[in-house]
Simulated scan of single mutants.
Amino acid sequence: MKIAKKDKYSVGQLSKASGVRVRTLHFYDQRNLLKAKRDINGYRFYSDYDAALLQQIIIYRQMDMTLDDIANIINADNFDLLSALHKQHELLIQRRENTNDMIKRIEVSIKMAKGEENLDAILKGLPQVKVDEWKSQIKQDENGDAVFKFYGKLPEEDIPNIKDEADEWTRHYMEVTHLPVDESEVQRLIKEAYIIMNRMFYKTMDDFSGVDYDFLKRIIIDGRQESVVVDIYETYQKGLATHYFDAMDFFAENSLKQNEEELMKLQ
């Protein structure tokens, strides 16, 4: 706590300014850690130097140093308060940076744990043994962290609607997998899937402007190669994965490529 400069402080004034209890100040006095002075009337008081020294003691205590160690430092013949404060300032800045790094790592861990929870909710209804197997494979994949962080960014209140929409779309799509991928009903559902995909990215990516042709082509290529993604589709219906990616590829080449600006805004 920063203490405002003042010519002298009574015990009570220094206690209030520093947040250190009067009883603690008396204890520091007894331990020759922070000795109070006396005015001509015999009243205890502290100087600005004492207030600055108390700040140094507070810092040392926050660093879990013992009172004996603190006393040895500040009572040493070569003790320089200004140098000590500069050093502690540097140490505290470094501690703040380390703390900020820890906070960021914890926030990432929270998002990953939240992502796993959201993924569980979205896949609810599929065999749990399969869900556990997929999550295990994702965790072992070099890009697994990114997958969980992606799902972790989805707003919790949106998860029920996301699941309902995905389940409804999948039920309808399973009814058209016997049709060629260029059939109008198939492409209508694929356009819906593209819009759902677009909406998901808008929710989870900063400065996102829409899934363009090149982005969608990468998604299709990666999806075909991702065993977990393929297995999820195949768990719903045999052959669904191949049909879906072929249909999405047709959509990319025959709809999105010519209408990027219009379609990328849909969500």
Rank of each mutant, 00 (worst) to 15 (best):
D214Y: 09
I159E: 00
K2V: 10
A166K: 10
I232A: 06
E116K: 15
N98K: 13
G144A: 09
R38S: 04
V11L: 11
L240Y: 08
Y151A: 00
P180A: 15
I159D: 01
K139R: 14
I221D: 15
E142H: 09
K16I: 06
T204I: 04
Q267K: 13
L119P: 05
N41F: 08
I221C: 06
F45L: 03
I70N: 03
N100L: 15
H243S: 07
S15L: 00
I57R: 01
S83W: 08
K16H: 08
A4N: 13
S209T: 13
E185G: 05
N198I: 05
V176Q: 03
K217S: 08
D29T: 00
V129P: 08
K135P: 07
E133L: 15
S136Q: 13
I106R: 15
G144R: 09
I59Q: 07
F208R: 03
K111W: 00
Q187D: 10
W134Q: 02
A193M: 14
K5P: 12
Y213W: 04
D158E: 12
K139F: 07
A76Y: 04
S15I: 00
Q30C: 01
A241W: 02
L189D: 07
E117L: 11
K111C: 02
P180N: 14
H86S: 09
F150C: 01
E262V: 10
D39T: 06
I3V: 11
E157K: 15
R21P: 02
N161C: 05
L25P: 00
R21S: 14
K6Q: 14
G42L: 10
F27H: 12
Q56S: 15
W134V: 01
T204A: 14
I138N: 05
Y43N: 14
D214P: 02
A146E: 11
T235C: 14
H178A: 12
R21C: 03
D69Q: 10
G12K: 15
I195R: 11
P180V: 12
D141M: 02
Q225H: 11
G42K: 10
S184D: 13
D164I: 04
L82T: 13
V11P: 01
I196Y: 15
T99L: 15
I190R: 09
K217M: 12
A76G: 09
D132L: 10
Q55A: 06
N75L: 02
E97T: 11
